[in-house]
């Protein structure tokens, strides 16, 4: 009973710091922060037992806006940092926050290997299809015709498909959310955090400054019309053919998470010397 009471005692505000975000007014990331604090409150995990890890970019500023432990590291390496942390502190809840530049471009290789490694953590990518912090350069998810100063006339390149890549690389949970739906996002976050292994959530989070066209996203998103699958083949077909605006949990796998046993020494350090004794 006392456990339930404790949970009820947690409020989203308990998970929010008093630092004012650097985000532009109207940025989708405000709602992601709201989803975080709601999800954490619903989970009822004390804030000191949650670590939010990030890289560089607008979205990566989120750790300090929570009242959890946080790590705002270098560009693109948040998943690796989180892996070392989680392996040595498996009792903590580890949430990694990133953006489409940080996560899919400079951090692309780590994304593949984090999916494959399947350590129990949740990876949230706030995708706005643009580099916002550096003021509007194309990211791996930017449409080919989108015109920027760095890509006059558009990149002409096919956008990256993060959900398909996550699935193919071994992610154990794949979902898409829209930041403008914080209740739905919060409940999917709760499920992702509770799901064993590597959970990947792509959150469509509009950049109102450099992509004002993304204000339209609220009219384009729609809940996935079919139920969550645990069959990677079905999930792959669905992800490859969807319109990019299906929201919900699209795949929920059953792979066992990777976690070496730690903290239980079998021998004293002095025993290791035996390798070298003549």
């Amino acid at each position: 009973m006392s456990v339930v009471d404790m949970r009820l005692a947690r409020k989203p505000a308990d998970y929010k710091s008093d630092i004012k975000p650097v985000w532009c007014p109207g940025c989708g990331d405000y709602h992601v922060l709201l989803s975080f604090t709601r999800a954490f409150a619903e989970l009822g995990v004390p804030p000191e037992n949650i670590v939010v890890v990030s890289g560089i970019g607008c979205s990566s500023r989120i750790p300090a806006y929570t009242n959890c432990y946080g790590f705002h590291g270098v560009h693109g390496r948040s998943l690796a940092l989180a892996a070392g942390l989680k392996v040595m502190r498996p009792e903590l809840k580890v949430v990694v926050a990133s953006g489409d530049g940080d996560g899919y471009s400079i951090g692309g290789n780590h994304f593949l290997h984090a999916c494959r490694r399947n350590i129990d953590m949740t990876y949230v990518v706030m995708d706005n299809h643009i580099y916002g912090m550096t003021k509007g350069q194309p990211s791996p998810t930017t449409e080919p015709e989108f015109d920027t100063a760095l890509s006059p006339g558009g990149t002409g390149l096919r956008p990256f498909h993060p959900l398909v890549i996550a699935l193919a690389s071994g992610a154990n949970f794949v979902a898409r959310c829209f930041s403008g739906e914080p209740n739905e996002t919060a409940s999917i976050l709760v499920e992702a955090i509770n799901h064993p292994g590597f959970s990947f959530i792509e959150i469509l989070s509009p950049c109102v400054t450099f992509r004002p066209d993304e204000r339209e996203w609220k009219n384009l998103v729609h809940p996935a019309s079919v139920a969550t699958t645990n069959d990677p083949a079905k999930a792959a077909r669905r992800l490859m053919t969807d319109d990019g605006f299906n929201t919900g949990i699209l795949y929920r796998g059953e792979r066992k998470p990777y976690q070496p046993p730690v903290g239980r020494p079998q021998v004293d350090v002095s025993e290791l010397e035996r390798d070298f004794e003549l």
Partner: peptide, 14 residues
């Protein structure tokens, strides 16, 4: 790149 960041993460955890 991952190796050093993993190391930092583990150390951050203690």
């Amino acid at each position: 790149l991952a190796a050093i960041n993993m190391t930092i993460g583990a150390s951050f955890g203690g």
